[in-house]
Design a binder for these strands. Structure first.
Length: 712
DNA sequence: AGGTCGGATCTTTTT
DNA sequence: GATCCGACCT
């Protein structure tokens, strides 16, 4: 490996970015322009040119997946020379620092990480406990508010109340929640970042150590950083430091969870000596697709500005399909896939992208009907499943008795007769003496009037936890998990579960043991490392079967991916752009960026579709073609079926009593012709006719009173 | 303590 | 239409 090899595969702009000798660099990297490649090559470059040692690099992103990919690509490029550099997620990096400096950060050695689900449960409990009159926010809303505060670096005592109706109540909840976390040594996701930030800010020795250590700070997906994350990065960087950030303001789609695109302009302001490099050559899509994307995104008012181009030729026009309804839309797309050899040949090159996950169902039905393999991305991940979290909670408690969240979760799972009443007693006690529940439940249990039955159960619970604790001293991870499942009685508990979920759950427990067997870590306590892993990584890649199948996912989860054939569906105002974003310019622009992301996923063929009528939330709505499609020049679009033919008609046939009523687009069944869709109707009463397009027998006009159609 | 019923609500998702 | 939540019942 030498310089030539590092630079050889790069185009001139990419090369410029990689070898830039400016200290601060902003790389504006369009979709498909080799964004991560530039970052990875930059790491290799600075190491190979002797600008720094491999352990002096800090490279961060958002997801474990992206960090993993970054790590392995750097590894390939540098022949593992980078081993000691810090490559990871923001949260992972912050966590690492907190473990190293737990004392200085004011944390207990065994502090545990809680995920958003745990956090929501605790907040819910706090709200209930405070007994606030008239307070009617949901726990989720409060959670969002608290996390926003944390992201702004605001502790309860620093809040400036805005005299809103519930301000003082929200503040009390925040305080109480935070107290509870401190008492039980729990750290939530935003807290990982805020704690680290405060630690570095207040402890000049530690900060200096890291500032000296990190010669190069690199960030991928910079447009997704939150204000706290940017402030955190800036702690390590001054004007003399190498700061290399890569991002695309046109692909910023996560403002709703704290991402601040503004950080890109803040970067330009904060580092006036920075160099900006634009990567606009696209290696993914054909020209027509890129043109559509360029034109669309130009309608956004707040962007730095760039234009994608390619050498790869014009390609085909974008197809636009006008469906009668959502089912018609799904069937058409599935037909399109199955009737083309090119598309059928590699199913996983076909991606159906939609705005809301509820849209997947109709497609799943249509795909199943045609026996086409598919995979829906998103939804519950492995470590988020209740049964997995139960086992993890036992382990967490064995690691840290302070962990109230874990205690509450499993003290009565399986049911041991320790109900709400008992727990409430503990909570009260716990709050008044400021000790974790575990201690109020055991060390002080003589003081409370508890029945013998409850006392016995508690004893039993205690010995389970201590049993796990002892067993964990001298056994490997897989056996510890196995023992935990046995001792806790969880397996038996799920076996007896009445709903059909029990068997699934037990399978998942076995999967957990497999995960434990394969888990590797350099930490001294494998168990602690595994529990952290479970909190920090939702376990996306669990049980991958690698089957060739059609990919179904939301536009959000499609970011970063590419497919030969992309179907962008449900392009209707109100659905995409979503209703909730229609009245707000910045939100509407984010929806447009989302559409931009969708379009730029396609390598070869892009198909857009919309339905004139859509069933949503139980009832039928007529729709309007999405403004985003209307913004794309019509010479780039090929309409597959002329729309609007029926939209001016009454959408329901008005029949005499006793006669079947049909709706346009409705699925019906006929004894001879099979299943079909109602396309049109005419006449009234016994002379009325319906036009039906049958899946196998073509389109026919049928007299309603004789046809004997059954609605489906 | 656990189940059942009515009512409200209905993006996007990672850590 | 489906799901989640809180209130109420057994």
């Amino acid at each position: 490996m030498d310089n030539v090899e590092i630079l050889g595969e790069l185009n001139s702009m990419q090369k410029q970015a990689v070898v830039s000798d400016a200290l601060q660099n902003l790389v504006l990297a369009g979709a498909g322009s080799g964004k991560t490649k530039v970052l990875v090559h930059r790491v290799a470059w600075v190491i190979y040119t002797g600008q720094c040692e491999s352990n002096e690099v800090l490279a961060v992103t958002f997801t474990n997946k992206a960090a993993g990919e970054m790590r392995s690509r750097i590894k390939v490029l540098t022949n593992s020379l980078f081993e000691r550099s810090w490559v990871g997620t923001f949260h992972g990096t912050a966590h690492k620092m907190l473990r190293l400096h737990f004392k200085e950060a004011g944390l207990n050695k065994n502090f545990q990480i809680i995920d958003s689900d745990d956090q929501a449960r605790i907040i819910k409990r706090v709200i209930k406990e405070l007994n606030l009159v008239e307070f009617d926010w949901s726990a989720k809303e409060v959670q969002a508010r608290i996390n926003t505060w944390k992201d702004r670096g605001l502790r309860p005592n620093k809040l400036v109340l805005e005299e809103e109706k519930y301000d003082s109540m929200l503040k009390r909840i925040y305080e109480e929640y935070q107290n509870l976390c401190e008492r039980s040594s729990l750290v939530d996701f935003p807290e990982l970042l805020l704690r680290t930030f405060e630690l570095l800010k207040s402890n000049s020795v530690i900060l200096k150590m890291y500032k000296n250590r990190f010669a190069h700070i690199m960030v991928d997906e910079f447009q997704d950083t939150s204000s706290l994350q940017y402030k955190w990065l800036k702690l390590f960087v001054d004007e003399s430091k190498n700061f290399f950030v890569v991002g695309d303001d046109d692909q910023s789609i996560y403002s709703w969870r704290g991402a601040k695109v503004e950080n890109m302009s803040s970067f330009q302001r904060d580092y006036p000596e920075h160099k900006i490099t634009r990567l606009e050559q696209n290696y993914r899509s054909t020209s027509k697709i890129l043109k559509a994307a360029n034109v669309l995104i130009k309608n956004n008012t707040t962007r730095i500005g760039k234009e994608l181009w390619t050498n790869e030729g014009d390609g085909e026009k974008i197809a636009l399909f006008n469906a009668y309804n959502d089912q018609d839309e799904a069937r058409y797309i599935v037909d399109l896939i199955t009737s083309s050899d090119e598309r059928k040949e590699c199913l996983s090159e076909n991606a159906i992208l939609y705005r809301v996950s509820a849209q997947s169902r109709v497609f799943e039905d249509a795909l199943r009907e045609r026996n086409v393999n598919y995979k829906v991305y998103g939804g519950f991940r492995f470590y988020e499943r209740a049964e997995i979290k139960d086992v993890i909670a036992y382990l967490r408690l064995a690691l840290s008795k302070d962990d109230d969240s874990a205690f509450e979760r499993v003290v009565n799972i399986p049911a041991r007769g320790i109900g709400l009443k008992t727990i409430q007693k503990f909570r009260q006690e716990s709050k008044s003496i400021d000790k974790p529940l575990w201690y109020t439940a055991f060390d002080l249990s003589e003081n409370k009037e508890l029945s013998n039955k409850v006392l016995t159960s508690l004893d039993e619970f205690k010995s389970i936890i201590e049993g796990i604790q002892n067993y964990a001293l001298n056994n490997d991870l897989e056996s510890i998990i196995k023992k935990t499942i046995e001792l806790s009685g969880l397996e038996e508990h799920y076996r007896q579960e009445k709903s059909g979920r029990g068997l699934d759950r037990i399978e998942n427990l076995q999967e957990l043991m497999v995960a434990a067997r394969d888990f590797v870590s350099s930490e001294e306590s494998m168990l602690a490392a595994f529990v952290t892993h479970a909190a920090l990584e939702a376990g996306e890649g669990q049980s991958q079967d690698g089957e060739d199948c059609v990919q179904l996912m939301t536009l959000h989860s499609a970011k970063g991916l590419e497919f030969k054939f992309v179907y962008l569906v449900g392009l209707e105002d109100g659905l995409f752009p979503h209703n909730r974003s229609l009245n707000n310019l910045s939100q509407l622009e984010e929806e447009r960026r989302l559409c931009y992301v969708g379009i730029t996923r396609a390598r070869q063929r892009l198909t857009l579709s919309y339905a004139e009528s859509r069933r949503l939330h139980g009832s039928e709505h007529s729709t309007i073609l999405s403004r985003f499609v209307r913004e794309i020049p019509s010479d780039l679009i090929q309409s597959v079926r002329a729309g609007g033919r029926f939209s001016s008609l009454d959408s329901t046939q008005t029949g005499e009593s006793g006669l079947q009523l049909f709706k346009l687009g409705q699925s019906v069944h006929h004894k001879v012709f099979g299943t079909g869709i109602v396309l049109d109707f005419e006449g009234k009463g016994t002379t009325s006719r319906v036009q039906v397009r049958f899946a196998d027998s073509g389109t026919k006009w049928l007299v309603t009173s004789y046809a004997g159609l059954t609605p489906l």
